Simulated scan of single mutants.
Amino acid sequence: MNIDELKNTWNEDIADKTPEISIEQKNKINLPLEKVRKNMRAEFWWIIAIFVFVFLVCSVCQPFKLQLYITVLVASMLIVTIFFFSKFFKLYNDISNTELNTYESLKDLVNQLNLNKQYYLSYYISFAPFLVCEILIVLEFIPWPTPPGETKIALILISSVIGGLFLLFLVGRFWFHRYYGRYIKHIEGLLEELRV
Rank of each mutant, 00 (worst) to 15 (best):
N101F: 00
S105A: 01
K117R: 08
K87Y: 12
L33H: 00
F85Y: 15
A49K: 07
I48A: 14
K107E: 09
E20D: 04
I14S: 00
K65W: 08
L66E: 08
N8W: 00
W46R: 10
L165T: 13
F44W: 11
E34T: 09
S59F: 11
Y69G: 11
I125Q: 08
I137D: 02
R37A: 11
S122G: 14
Q118D: 12
F169T: 14
L121M: 13
V72Q: 10
L56P: 06
E104I: 02
R182G: 09
H177I: 14
I29P: 01
L190A: 02
G149I: 08
H177Q: 12
V72T: 15
S159G: 05
V72A: 11
K117V: 06
H186R: 12
D16C: 01
E188S: 14
K90V: 15
Q25E: 04
G163E: 10
G149N: 08
N93V: 08
L68P: 02
D4R: 06
L121S: 09
N97F: 08
S86Q: 10
T71F: 11
F169E: 12
I135P: 04
C133Q: 07
M77Q: 13
I82P: 03
K152H: 02
F85V: 13
P129L: 04
L155S: 09
N97C: 12
T102F: 00
I48P: 04
V60I: 14
E20N: 00
I3L: 05
A15S: 06
F130A: 07
N97P: 09
M1R: 03
S59H: 10
K38R: 14
E43S: 14
G164S: 09
L100Y: 00
M1S: 06
E192H: 07
L31R: 03
L194D: 05
K7Y: 04
K35W: 00
A15E: 03
I162G: 13
L113F: 06
F51E: 13
T9A: 03
Y92Q: 07
T151I: 05
S22C: 01
F166G: 15
F53K: 07
K117L: 07
V161G: 05
K65V: 13
L139V: 09
V36F: 02
Q25N: 04
K117C: 05
L157A: 12
L113K: 02
Y180W: 10
S86D: 13
C133D: 05
V132G: 05
I153F: 01
F130S: 10
I14Q: 01
P19C: 00
Y69K: 15
F53H: 03
I125Y: 08
L6E: 04
E24Q: 03
D108R: 04
D13Y: 00
T71S: 15
C58W: 06
L113N: 01
L6G: 02
I187Q: 02
N97V: 05
A42P: 02
F51C: 09
V54G: 11
D108A: 04
F176V: 13
L91M: 07
P147W: 02
V171W: 08
L170T: 15
E104Q: 01
T81V: 11
R173G: 13
F84S: 04
F64W: 12
M77H: 11
L165P: 10
H186N: 14
S159A: 11
I135T: 07
L121H: 14
L121E: 10
W175A: 12
V57A: 14
E43N: 15
V52Y: 10
I23H: 01
V57W: 09
